[in-house]
C-alpha cells in the first residue's frame, strides 16, 4: 500500500458534544490507514475525545454564535500527529495535571481528561493563552515491530 505520510486531514466541528463521536470516528479512520494496532487506535480515540471535551469545558461552550473546534491530523513517518484547536478563553494546563502527578486528587470528578491524554499519547503539548484559545498537540508514535526492524 502506498504510504500516506505527509498527508493532512482537517475536520471542522461545531463546538457541541454530539459531534465528538464524529471526531473520534474520523481520526480513528485516519489512524487505521497507518500500521497501528487496535489498542493504539483506541488510545487515539480516547485522547481526541478528551481534547474535544477540554475545548468545550475550558472556554468554548456551546451556545448562540457557536464556534468551531478544529481537529487536524498530520500523517508522518514517525506517527500520527493530532492537533485540536479551539478559539475559547483558554485555561491553565498546569493546574489539573499537577494535582494528579502529586497524587492529591484520586477521588476527583474533574481534571481526568488531561491525565488520560498525557498517559495515552506521546509528546503532548498544551498551548493556552488567555483570550486566544487553546491548542492541544499530541503524537502517537508508530511502534516498529521487532521482526520488521531486524
Amino acid at each position: 500500500m502506498e504510504t500516506s505520510s505527509g498527508c493532512h486531514v482537517e475536520l471542522h466541528l461545531p463546538n457541541r458534544p454530539e459531534f465528538f463521536a464524529v471526531a473520534r470516528l474520523a481520526v480513528s479512520a485516519v489512524a487505521c490507514r497507518m500500521s497501528y494496532d487496535i489498542d493504539a487506535i483506541e488510545d487515539i480515540k480516547v485522547a481526541v475525545g478528551e481534547a474535544c471535551t477540554n475545548a468545550i469545558e475550558h472556554g468554548c461552550p456551546p451556545g448562540p454564535g457557536a464556534q468551531e473546534i478544529i481537529v487536524c491530523c498530520d500523517l508522518t513517518d514517525e506517527g500520527l500527529e493530532i492537533t485540536v484547536k479551539d478559539p475559547g478563553e483558554g485555561f491553565d494546563p498546569s493546574t489539573a495535571a499537577r494535582q494528579h502527578r502529586h497524587g492529591t486528587a484520586v477521588l476527583t470528578e474533574r481534571g481526568l481528561g488531561m491525565l488520560l491524554i498525557e498517559s495515552l499519547m506521546d509528546n503532548v503539548h498544551f498551548d493556552s493563552i488567555p483570550g486566544s484559545g487553546t491548542q492541544v498537540r499530541m503524537m502517537k508514535r508508530l511502534r516498529v515491530l521487532e521482526n520488521e526492524s531486524a
Partner: peptide, 16 residues
C-alpha cells in the same frame, strides 16, 4: 464500548 473522563466523573460523583 467507550467511556471518557466525563463518564468517570459521573461515576465518581455518584460514588461520593
Amino acid at each position: 464500548e467507550y467511556l471518557d473522563s466525563t463518564a468517570l466523573g459521573v461515576l465518581v460523583g455518584t460514588l461520593k
